[in-house]
């Protein structure tokens, strides 16, 4: 079985972006911010590694779009147990989207299963996984909270959360693409032997030509910080004073 896991490097959730108002883009100071594998992508990687552990002969590759700056997240995935890692060359903020590059890359590679996270923590678009699948004509299921592969029937069964009271269980023929929700498993720590072998693996930077049919661009006309809710109060003072202020509000409403 051949598995591809698509990962993205994202700033740590506590990193604070700045707005470049000239180009309407977000900037993270790479010296002050830490960068990690996008959380749901890491769960997707673990889900793939679990399949590699249980299905003999499984190969698992990881891929991302970016530049040399993204080598550390690919290296981390190799340390966790991925066989090969690739970076598809993409300049930040520029078209084409990562989904178009990955779709072009996988077209002739015969992956049986493509895994990725349900959304990226920075852009929060929920868009890359289903877009790749639609471009390469794989069936897909997104926001998956449990999955199993049936090798004999060449299918994957995936559980999705539809709402708080309903689960949908969908069975798809392979090849297929699954986007994974966070919390589905416990991502492993790299073993020492994997760490050593990952060190010497090459991480090729691959150039993909522009996709044949570019769709109409979406222009960012403004970026700003959110405004506070109308009538909101911020409690000031030391911890004790803030406690008293909150207590006064709740007491005046008869809540406490």
């Amino acid at each position: 079985m051949k598995i591809l896991v698509c990962i993205k490097e994202v700033p740590h959730s506590e990193s604070k972006p700045e707005i470049d108002f000239d180009t309407n883009s977000l900037i993270y100071d790479r010296d002050k911010s830490s960068f990690i594998i996008n959380s749901s992508d890491e769960y997707a990687l673990e889900e793939g590694l679990k399949l590699k552990d249980t299905i003999p002969g499984t190969e698992l590759d990881v891929i991302t779009a970016g530049t040399q700056l993204q080598i550390p997240v690919i290296r981390r995935a190799l340390e966790m147990g991925a066989d090969k890692g690739f970076i598809l060359k993409k300049e930040p903020h520029n078209d084409p989207p990562a989904s178009a590059l990955i779709a072009a890359f996988v077209k002739d590679k015969n992956y049986d299963l493509i895994l990725t996270g349900v959304m990226s923590d920075d852009n929060m678009e929920f868009i890359t996984g289903p877009s790749i699948a639609a471009l390469i004509n794989y069936p897909w299921a997104s926001s998956v909270t449990a999955m199993s592969v049936d090798v004999q029937n060449n299918s994957v069964k995936a559980e999705r959360e539809i709402d708080s009271a309903t689960l949908e269980i969908v069975t798809l023929k392979l090849p297929a693409l699954i986007t994974v929700q966070s919390g589905i498993n416990r991502p492993r720590y790299p073993s020492l032997s994997n760490k050593l072998s990952a060190k010497i693996k090459p991480v090729p930077l691959i150039e993909i030509g522009p996709p044949p049919d570019a769709i109409c661009p979406v222009e960012i006309i403004s970026l700003h910080f959110p405004e506070s809710k109308k009538g909101a109060v911020e409690l000031n003072g030391n911890t004790g004073e803030k406690s008293q202020a909150l207590l006064a509000i709740l007491r005046s409403r008869g809540e406490i």
């Binding site: 920075d122 006309i221 403004s222 970026l223 700003h224 910080f225 959110p226």
Partner: peptide, 11 residues
């Protein structure tokens, strides 16, 4: 964007 830290407007 960014967990709700930034609002963007797109056309």
């Amino acid at each position: 964007y960014a967990g709700g830290r930034i609002v963007s407007e797109v056309v």
